[in-house]
């Protein structure tokens, strides 16, 4: 069978979801943000909730997420996405509301809003991209930066004694009664992408049942910040990030 015979509408198995806009994303080549965006958009498409979804973008690399999701979007102040999401969901309870934040936004400046939205059990989906670094501002140390990891503000490595410990905020949030589903995923292999998408789907489905916060951490790469090629950064992620941030469900409420 030749190529022309295969490329026919009836043979289509995968195409870019129309819940993403046509804009070319500004993310660096190989950045996991693009994959994470796509999975959220695919879940929205598959659930048929595009007209009933409001997303909240953070400050950080994904500040421009609102240009990529073809759903109504709000851009929050740094760290405050869970506060916006709280109000949106309470004022529009029949809508699906998701926040999308990086580790600096969610686990440093926005720690208060994150913990209290989770503790109140807001009926929202929180997507958390953890790449252990401040990407947008040029690779500074984040709350999630690993011990001994070099960044522009820990140029000799994160020295825990003076710089503090890397924060496992996801495990912390799993302790709160307001979270119903807390999971850690990754998106750098086909199998992990498929698994992550199922987790995101679950996190959105939970909103139908008013279960509380569904929290999906995605351990991701930052090849520019880590100063590696995209494929090398994915290997580094597997070798260094995953031992400290192990993948899998942390909390699944009945």
């Amino acid at each position: 069978m030749n190529r022309e015979d295969i490329i026919k509408p009836e043979n289509l198995v995968y195409r870019r979801t129309p819940v993403l806009t046509e804009n070319i994303m500004h993310y660096c080549p190989g950045c996991g943000h693009g994959t994470a965006h796509r999975l959220v958009a695919e879940v929205i498409e598959e659930m048929g909730i595009q007209e009933k979804t409001i997303g909240i973008a953070p400050v950080g690399c994904s500040v421009l997420a609102y240009n990529y999701f073809e759903v109504d979007m709000q851009e929050a102040a740094h760290g405050r996405a869970p506060a916006l999401a709280t109000a949106v969901k309470r004022l529009k309870p029949d809508f699906f509301v998701f926040s999308y934040q990086g580790d600096g936004d969610l686990a440093a400046i926005g720690t208060g809003e994150t913990i209290h939205a989770c503790n109140r059990g807001e009926n929202i989906t929180m997507i958390f991209i953890n790449n252990g670094i401040y990407g947008m501002t040029g690779g500074q140390m984040a709350p999630t930066t690993l011990e001994d990891m070099k960044t522009s503000t820990s140029p000799y490595g994160r020295e825990v004694q003076s710089m503090g410990n890397p924060l496992k905020i996801t495990e912390l949030l799993a302790q709160l009664p307001g979270t119903c589903y807390v999971t850690r995923q990754a998106v750098y292999t086909p199998a992990l992408v498929r698994k992550c998408k199922r987790a995101i789907r679950q996190a959105f489905e939970n909103q139908k049942e008013n279960k509380g916060v569904s929290f999906v951490e995605i351990v991701s790469n930052c090849n520019s910040g880590w100063k590696m090629t995209p494929t090398a950064s994915n290997q580094w992620l597997e070798d260094n990030m995953l031992p400290f941030y192990p993948l899998g469900d942390i909390k699944v409420s009945k």
Binding site: I56, Q74, A76, A77, R80, A83, L84, A85, T86, A87, V88, G112, E113, H116
Partner: peptide, 9 residues
């Protein structure tokens, strides 16, 4: 801080 950002949303 959360209050005003809830108002924003």
């Amino acid at each position: 801080v959360a209050s005003i950002n809830m108002v924003y949303g």
